[in-house]
Write a protein that binds this DNA or RNA. Sequence first.
DNA 1: TTTCAGCATTGACAAATTTCGACTTTTTAT
DNA 2: ATAAAAAGTCGAAATTTGTCAATGCTGAAA
Lengths: 231, 231
Amino acid sequence: MLKNTQHSDCNECSSICAYFKNLKTDELAELNRNRFEVFYKAGETIIKQGSLSKYLVSFSSGYAKVFIEGPADKNLIISIVQPKQILGGPGIYTDSKHHYSVVALTDTKVCLIELDTFKDFVRRNPEFAEGLIADMNSKAIDIQTKFMSLTQKQMHGRIADGLLYLSEDVFKAMEFDMLINRQELAELTGMSKESACRILKDFKDSDVIDFQNSHMKILNMEALQKISRNG
Amino acid sequence: MLKNTQHSDCNECSSICAYFKNLKTDELAELNRNRFEVFYKAGETIIKQGSLSKYLVSFSSGYAKVFIEGPADKNLIISIVQPKQILGGPGIYTDSKHHYSVVALTDTKVCLIELDTFKDFVRRNPEFAEGLIADMNSKAIDIQTKFMSLTQKQMHGRIADGLLYLSEDVFKAMEFDMLINRQELAELTGMSKESACRILKDFKDSDVIDFQNSHMKILNMEALQKISRNG
DNA sequence: TTTCAGCATTGACAAATTTCGACTTTTTAT
DNA sequence: ATAAAAAGTCGAAATTTGTCAATGCTGAAA
């Protein structure tokens, strides 16, 4: 974890979450004074579940996994984050603790935003507050969708959902490097890593996908979507 | 569904969600003009998933189940609501649709709050907005907890969690009428109703609980909590 | 009161999923 | 480059969970 003293300006930042566009010039200046850039290497922990949240984390570059740590190393990956997303939300107005962990999947750059500054914006700037609420709204809907997938579908449907998530929401491509290993794919889809392996093989055998380790190619998107629908 | 023309005053309402205390006198008066009371009988649908959300629902008396409707009648009960809770949130700043259904478990009284009025408050009253955000925060944490329970624990742990939820969060008693039947208990804990039956029997046989149909008594809270912890 | 429909219960079986063990491949550290 | 560690793969066995079918129970309607 390296701190960078070479700050760019929030005004010109292209990797900030959409609703920050509602900040006025003076607020942006204030934001600029109360944030700092941090670089993480792949594998480093950006947010640790249970720790005090003093900052919100604005994701600038790279990828990271967001996951809930259960007892006995039973993790559940909630999402893969990418630039323009804000992390650290759920605890900020309740117990001021982080309710998930975030670990970098690639080398990563983030901006840590002072929580006091952020909360000031929420109080002073209604558009900003609305943006935050809208962001929380869509995160709530996302987690509901994931909740349904993991509790109501069988393994084939869940792996299909996982692959569609990576393809459509994260990497926006039919061919991509997953960045996560089999264990993590299992944690994303709520099964054992062996089961994840077997189902990937099934999909490969039926020419729905092709892969080499973590490099994944979707060959038959319709089939994958059908598997997802059928659960 | 009966509309009631005998409005009480929001000022004196004791069954409104805590963060509405942040509303000022004139705002409360405005709220009073832009809401109306509705009565539902047990079994009636208060909110239908997929419908347009024109109102927020403030729960005044009675109980209701909140659930996501999956394909093929596969429902997932997210929570049991009680007075002082606000419903209809997740879609209000995104697609203006309801993302879950709500059905009354008992005869029920709610206040429908005009969405435009509510959003006005959010814009004009920072404390109110903060209250809303805090409420969303705790709902997000709740659903995360439930998510972990349903995806990481086996059936005994999930039923224990379900019973603890009913006892500690909903009815706040060791003995209570569940209001939900076995099918619904199954939908709350993510299993088939037969499995739910069998596990209730296991718990009864080991003197952890006692029950007669929907009337439930927790005999050994420590044992139940241990089962919950052990998954 | 009687009847009936729906809910609850239970056992037997089938299906889904995990665990274990063995082995191979890939990555990492020296 | 080599060895060690980690990750991936896969079959078989064990476990968990769901489905089906039969039966009992309960409360509401006639």
